[in-house]
Design a protein around this nucleic acid. Structure first.
Lengths: 121, 121
DNA sequence: CTAAACCTTGCCGTTGACGTGAAGGTCAAG
DNA sequence: CTTGACCTTCACGTCAACGGCAAGGTTTAG
């Protein structure tokens, strides 16, 4: 499949996919014309990238982690043991983020409570 | 108190506090010299700003919400009912973020599992 | 009274993940 | 065989939350 089709399926843009490639997150084959050619399993990879990006990881961290994530039925865990520390760091970062988000949500909940309580005294 | 002292207590910088003021999040009084003067309760306000910022709200959203948050023993809920929708929107945004973070953490957990399992087969 | 340590405004720099053309090659339909 | 919809590689623009520096006024310790 070509870049626009993959972008459509992943709900993103060709520009983003080229950016991911530039950052070493994707390695599409090339047709004779120079067009990028993506295997169907690339969709899963892009989904993983999006998930990790939305979790606050940057492309450098994702580039380290991504080869360890099984796309399909390929290799299961290439060089992952070396990354256990990095993985734990990111995991902790995420947990901290979740805690902060929950705290902020609690603040909003109190406000929503107070606000809607004023309507039915 | 002056700007550096507040910054110190809040664990941030004078530059950030000026930025918050520029965005309408803080309204310190001014001394005759032109120096900013902060009431002690401003510390709580800054803490709220930091919390909401770390939850992914931008300064514009915080500017809407902040007047509704009781700093101390002041007014409880000035014009909040009008903001219930905005609050709900942000709350949903936060919940979505938490879900995504949890999903990403689950991915990392699987990797950590797989990686550390390889050491004790 | 002077030097250090504050403070002010103003304005440009940074970072990350892209957006947005520009200039040109490629492919499918008519 | 030509149009229009793709694609390619530059390369500069954006946005948010500040960082950092300059040029100058203020305060305070000695």
């Amino acid at each position: 499949m070509r870049i626009s089709e993959l972008a459509r399926q992943a709900g993103t843009t060709p520009r983003a996919l080229r950016y991911y490639e530039e950052q070493g997150l994707l390695r599409p084959a090339r047709l004779a014309s120079g067009y990028r050619h993506y295997e169907p399993q690339a969709l899963g990879t892009v989904r993983h990238i999006q998930l990790l990006l939305s979790a606050g990881l940057n492309t450098a961290a994702i580039a380290e982690i991504l080869p360890c994530i099984p796309d399909d039925v390929t290799v299961l865990a290439p060089t992952c043991p070396e990354l256990l520390d990095a993985l734990a760091v990111e995991r902790n970062r995420i947990t901290t983020s979740i805690d902060r988000l929950a705290a902020a949500r609690a603040v909003l909940d109190r406000l929503i409570q107070a606000g809607s309580a004023r309507d039915q005294p």
